[in-house]
Design a binder for these strands. Structure first.
Lengths: 335, 335
DNA sequence: TTTATTTACGAAACCGTTTTCGTGTACATC
DNA sequence: GATGTACACGAAAACGGTTTCGTAAATAAA
């Protein structure tokens, strides 16, 4: 007979319900009985079966984090933020990686209906979300919080940054440093945050009477090689940009590598500013001017929101929308 | 009535057992009945309750990854490796962060006894492991695989790198580049891999007739500020080292920052080699010579080992010990 | 025709908890 | 003495699946 609450009950001549209540410190049970139960449970090394109680209580104490990549300074900082609050709540964090693959994201989301997790924190991958299970979850009032990359058309709590402004400021910064031909590195997939950053970029150009050039807005692919050759091609041209806004970290470091390969001097030949949370942006050659997002804070805030929802299942928490501002850190790459 | 197997049974005038078997495509059920059940289940959007089946089958389809940090190029690459095989097996990866805190690690491990996960992949935090729950798990034959940082005294499968050799080679490299006074940055906590790397360092010094100096072996703390001041102090001295081996990534980048602050030129004033998996070590100022571990491969291999164990619960798989070699990537910081 | 065997399904036990609803005892209240 | 009320505990019904075992009918083998 394995070590269950039943065994304790039998050995101690008690009813299972009594043991169960004693273990959860119910007021119905006398101090003396509690002591006996606790002591004996300890002695025989009783460990409650997680799944039995989950089944009964309909609560897994798990939350899911769905992100594109983990090898990214932004997302790894976010995870730390998430974990910092989940841990205080006794919750477990299951990490799901989509690798920017929409199909994978959908299959992950579908799986959540089984109850493996009580809530979801998600930063979506690019692409259309028409018949995505994300709508199902939202429609079923499944506890859901978006962070950084949200689905505008889905009703849910959201923690975002001021992407439009950041795109604007980044571009303006380059303009102030004398750039006339500024390129913008975007992702291939349609992402709201990238669109906003690009909008900020375009508006900054317009406001400063610089013309916006189609060929300077690069829709890079998810494959590093493809992106490499795209950016490489642009930088090889006679009429190459003198300033670059990297809308995601990967593309920015990639551009650095390309400039190294092409013997282009940063910032003399090209100035670069990138959205990035690299803790050692200042150690790069040259140190990188960044738009730095409050990654840890975003993780923390999103998780707090999620727990607000979780703990108020009945109360119907309104779908908050929180904006945490990013900041521009000027370094040598735009000197 | 919520959507359960019982509802399907009632609506279709079948027994619950029939429905259950139909859903799991049992040979006992006729094709016609299966079709009816599947169709109806689809129609009413039936989703099986994960915990009910887990309770009965005693299998969670979760594996745990216990690591010190996620914001580290090595560990995030490992996670990718782990996830790449877990996904093909239909398993879910729960990430646990210890932040190098032994107490936290222990409480995490203790929790595993409840059955939340079917197996554990772990890279231990420093410190003594005398009465650690890790021994319990191992004693109970709980599926367990160590990677990178193992507990030597615990019987379990292990995936490691050639730390002794790497420490030796790194030091030898500095010696060949003309360094006479080589420092070694270690962690405060006792870690087997760090000890091995240090042993390699010491042996290399001895083999090349260089004296080993106590004050050049720095036991850095877990706190960045403390480590900063420790390294800073060493580098401020007249008699400072002309070469540094960073045994972990964090300490290496930290040393870079300190050198910048102190206006020490790398590699002219100090040469630096670090254990690191930074994808852009070559973009640092100056580019960093590294000992690079096969991080993704380690994650992959460890997970494959774990599944070997999981899938052979009866067969008692022997505790393998796999060594994946690291490689020295020479760059400018040791020119 | 009688006896096996196969096929397709049902009844009920089971996994290990939690929770609801009693119930008997002791003590206080009227 | 009858009634009310804490108190401490027990019996049994959940939770939603899986699994075992039994059985009626159909088919095959004797």
């Amino acid at each position: 007979m394995s070590i269950t609450i039943r065994k304790i009950a039998k050995d101690l001549q008690l009813a299972v319900s009594t043991v169960s209540k004693a273990l959860s410190d119910s007021y119905e049970i006398s101090a003396e009985t509690k002591r006996r139960v606790l002591e004996y449970a300890e002695k025989i090394d009783y460990v409650p079966n997680l799944y039995a109680s989950t089944l009964k209580q309909r609560k897994s104490n798990n939350i899911a984090v769905v992100i594109p990549e983990v090898a990214d300074s932004f997302f790894s900082a976010v995870i730390n933020g998430i974990e910092s609050v989940a841990q205080t709540k006794g919750y477990h964090v299951i990490v799901y990686l989509t690798h920017e693959d929409l199909k994978k994201e959908e299959s992950i989301l579908r799986d959540f209906r089984g109850g493996r997790v009580d809530g979801v924190l998600i930063s979506v991958s690019g692409g259309a979300k028409r018949n995505s299970p994300i709508h199902d979850l939202s429609a079923k009032k499944f506890p859901l919080v978006f962070f950084d990359r949200a689905c505008e058309e889905v009703e849910a709590a959201k923690v975002l940054t001021n992407d439009y402004e950041s795109g604007y400021k980044a571009t303006q910064h380059l303009i102030e440093k004398g750039c006339k031909k500024i390129a913008f590195l975007a992702t291939a997939e349609d992402l709201e945050i990238i669109n906003l950053r690009r909008k900020g970029y375009e508006d900054a150009l317009r406001d400063h009477r610089l013309k916006s050039r189609r060929e300077f807005i690069l829709r890079c692919s998810n494959s590093e090689e493809d992106s490499y050759s795209l950016i490489h091609k642009m930088l090889c041209k006679k009429d190459r940009p003198d300033g670059i806004v990297g809308s995601i970290e990967k593309l920015t470091t990639l551009t650095y590598a390309i400039c190294h390969d092409l013997k282009l001097k940063i910032p003399r030949d090209v100035k670069i500013i990138g959205f990035s949370n690299l803790p050692f942006a200042s150690l790069l050659n040259p140190s990188l001017t960044t738009i730095t997002q409050p990654a840890f804070e975003m993780g923390r805030t999103a998780t707090i929101l999620l727990f607000n929802i979780l703990e108020n299942k009945k109360g119907e928490v309104p779908n908050q929308r929180i904006i945490l501002p990013s900041s521009l850190m000027e370094r040598s790459s735009t000197k």
